[in-house]
Design a protein around this nucleic acid. Structure first.
Lengths: 179, 179
DNA sequence: ACCGTAAGGCTAACGCTGTTAGCCAGGAGG
DNA sequence: CCTCCTGGCTAACAGCGTTAGCCTTACGGT
């Protein structure tokens, strides 16, 4: 039925260690705190040595994004089994993003580095929206709503004290009313 | 009825000149191309001299964001007069953002620098969503949808060749169906 | 047992960034 | 005329991503 998760681009053990440290760093202090020097220091080496494992900084970021996409995709797929899939999909999307807000920020702060991502991963991660609503246009609209809500919530762009649970509910209602 | 547009934070003539050059620069080459040295060169001075007019770079960015917010708010207000306000509001939001995509990017690449913005401007710019749907929660959801669509479209995050007109239409339908 | 090579560290350095300190010319006001 | 403010300047600093080039270690082949 639902396709298997595409394999992430493989990493040597040391590279995986670096990615793991990078993730901690990003999650603790935000995407802009991810610098090659600080990252290197975390694993006890100097910045130029990182280039023995990754061609450049964006490659490290791409590895992080891959993992974020894979986790989000997996979580959303699990949500599809629920009795009200759209509702549960949104709940999951929000929970997953807010659990790792800075990774979500990093992943969405510009165009996707598609050429660095495991082939098929992007589609695989986006597919649950289609599986939930059964139609590509509404699926993209639902995705846009979910992303808009999450990024605005993470960036505190809604007026202070907004009841976002209710806003999410209202959006979910709008997207499920017609089906 | 609808409130008057709040006054933008005042600028000396020279500061206005700088902001104008900054806007050109951002719109031509993206937010990351806005550097103090390049900006200074545009108006024929050296980077440190900019600090005679603005305390730091974020103040220049805030001035740009103010203008973007004001223009977007004004355009959306005009859209409310249409026969189908929600539809026209979304059309206007999209058109305005895509007309200045890099300014939109700059304005939404993180938390709003609220302390640098003219008081009331943010609320004023967001109010049309409320005026269009007559209810705050749905208004915020609609805003999230619009922002999600625009930023994903600008960042080319939708699959290549997506028929976004139709996605917008589908979203608009979802948000107008219940009213 | 030796030799060659690759892996993975290192230092030094380059050009870029935002920003500060301190200096100096020009004009306005008392 | 003297003073002070405005708005320019140069020099410099720390931090950024990144490159060049060196060196040590370990391993595989003859």
């Amino acid at each position: 039925m639902t396709k298997r998760q595409p394999a992430l681009t493989p990493l040597t053990p040391r590279a995986a260690e670096i990615v793991s440290a990078a993730r901690d760093l990003v999650e603790e202090s935000g995407p802009e705190a991810l610098t090659m020097r600080v990252l290197a220091e975390r694993i006890g080496i100097r910045a130029p040595s990182l280039y023995k494992h990754f061609p450049d900084k964006t490659a490290v970021e791409a590895a992080l994004i891959e993992r974020g996409l894979a986790e989000l995709g997996a979580a959303m797929r699990a949500a599809l089994a629920a009795e009200r899939p759209v509702l549960e999909l949104l709940r999951t999307y929000r929970a997953q993003a807010l659990a790792n807000p800075n990774l979500y920020r990093l992943s969405t702060k510009g165009p996707l580095p598609r050429e660095r991502l495991a082939p098929g991963l992007e589609d695989w991660a986006g597919e649950p929206f289609f599986l939930a609503v059964g139609e590509p246009y509404l699926a993209q609209a639902l995705f846009a709503f979910a992303h808009g809500m999450v990024i605005l919530e993470i960036d505190r762009r809604f007026p202070e004290g907004s009841d976002l649970d209710r806003t999410w509910a209202e959006g979910a209602r709008a997207f499920t009313a017609g089906s």
